Amino acid sequence: MDWFVFALFMAASFTAAATGSLFPPDQWYKDLTKPGWTPPNWLFPIAWTILYVASAYAAMHIALHENNAVPMGFWAFQIAANTLWTPIFFGLKKLGVAMVAILVLWIAVLGTLITFFQLDQVAGLLMVPYLIWVSYAAALNLNIWRTN
């Protein structure tokens, strides 16, 4: 394990996560009609912390492989796309635009997962919960957009 490389990926992840503290759920979000399967607000930072650590660890594994340009490009794409959703949803309050942003994120995470798997199965598996969570979040975004 290369702790310095892992720390770099964690720094990128925490930078993306910072948008959550810049644009936290407010009264507007509380007043939205949400489905019964909406998780409690306290769960989001816990889930994202776990996902970011797993993703950074997976990225560190891939960064140490040869021929890693495409997987690293996908990882950079997904972390950039991840950074956009919160300001669009909670900051701009644009549910439809947030839906597009989360679909872009979903594609980026899927690309990351597939290309990671090609180099390292453990790294690929570590991205599976991330794709599941983004799929769930996309379904939630879609439901909130359609009902509001």
Rank of each mutant, 00 (worst) to 15 (best):
L84E: 03
L126H: 13
Y52E: 09
W48C: 03
G124K: 07
Y130Q: 06
F9T: 13
I46P: 10
L8R: 10
A81P: 04
W28G: 05
V5W: 00
P87Y: 07
W85H: 00
T49G: 14
V100N: 00
P39Y: 05
L105C: 09
L119G: 15
Q27I: 03
V128H: 08
M10D: 12
A18M: 06
A16R: 09
W42F: 15
L22A: 14
N141F: 01
L95D: 01
I107H: 04
S21P: 05
F14K: 15
F23L: 11
W133K: 12
T86L: 01
V122W: 14
W28M: 03
P25W: 02
T49C: 13
A98L: 05
A59Y: 05
K30R: 15
F23M: 11
Q78H: 06
W37Q: 03
A58L: 03
I88F: 00
W37E: 03
K93T: 00
W133F: 12
G111C: 04
A18P: 02
A59S: 15
A139E: 02
F9D: 06
A54Q: 07
L131C: 05
F23N: 11
A101P: 00
L113F: 06
I114T: 14
N82D: 04
F116Q: 14
W106H: 11
V134T: 12
A101R: 00
L119A: 13
W106K: 11
A101E: 00
F23V: 07
M1K: 08
Y57R: 13
A139S: 10
A98F: 02
W106T: 12
L140E: 04
E66T: 03
I62V: 14
V5K: 00
F4D: 10
T86A: 05
L140D: 03
F116L: 07
I102R: 01
K34C: 09
G36Y: 07
A56L: 05
L105P: 06
W106V: 01
M72V: 11
L140K: 04
F6K: 04
L131D: 08
L126D: 13
W106L: 12
V97H: 00
F23A: 11
V53R: 14
M10N: 14
M10K: 15
L51R: 01
L140S: 06
H65S: 08
A7F: 05
G111I: 06
T112R: 12
L131S: 12
L84M: 13
D31Y: 01
L105N: 10
A56Q: 12
L131M: 11
F89D: 00
S13E: 04
F89E: 00
P40L: 11
A17G: 14
L92P: 02
P71R: 12
I144P: 03
I62G: 08
Y130A: 07
